[in-house]
């Protein structure tokens, strides 16, 4: 079981990373958005492999919708969204590569250096997990939950304020 789990993790992980790379390699903006979508989907599939069923399905669903919406904003605001001109839209490439590389190496060092050990505890079933999350939501984490509502409210108000041009007649 554990070996299969590891293999699937590697498979979906590789997919996530590969799609992540495609995001910044492709010239077509729609491809870029869809690649990010599939990268996130692969991460969701990894959640499933790690038996976090609710979170996995949620991730797969949320990211499909949000990244698709992102695609339309990409197409609205990017030059040459079809990538027919193959233009280069990057700057400070070397710096970014270094930063990304250092971030990667540092993270890997921490991961492999820390050496987590111990037996893997058993996981509750998917139904219990969802119920437990619900109880958590209504119990200990209630304020976090309500704070999330306020955060979303703020985002909605802020986005409306900056993005919507006022017009006289309103329906």
């Amino acid at each position: 079981m554990s070996v299969a789990q590891a293999l699937f993790l590697i498979f979906f992980g590789a997919a996530a990373v590969w799609f992540g790379i495609v995001v910044f390699r492709t010239h077509s903006m729609v491809r870029s958005a869809i690649a990010l979508l599939f990268s996130q989907t692969a991460v969701g599939a990894m959640f499933l492999v790690m038996q976090a069923e609710f979170l996995g399905v949620l991730q797969i669903m949320m990211m499909a919708t949000e990244m698709s919406v992102m695609a339309i904003f990409m197409v609205m605001f990017m030059m040459d969204p079809g990538g027919m001109g193959k233009m280069d839209m990057t700057h400070q490439k070397r710096l970014s590569l270094w930063a990304g590389g250092i971030g990667l190496v540092a993270a890997l060092a921490v991961i492999w250096g820390a050496g987590w050990t111990g037996p893997v505890p058993p996981v509750p079933g998917a139904a219990e997990q969802a119920a437990a999350l619900g109880r958590e939501l209504l119990g200990r984490s209630m304020f976090i939950f309500e704070a999330a509502a306020l955060m979303i409210l703020t985002a909605m108000v802020a986005a409306t304020m900056v993005a919507i041009a006022p017009r006289e007649e309103d329906d």
């Binding site: 069923e53 609710f54 399905v57 949620l58 797969i60 669903m61 499909a64 919708t65 698709s68 079933g125 998917a126 139904a127 997990q129 969802a130």
Partner: peptide, 12 residues
Amino acid sequence: ATGALFLNAALA
């Protein structure tokens, strides 16, 4: 266990 949500996710 999350069938209804999965249905949603697939149809997304």
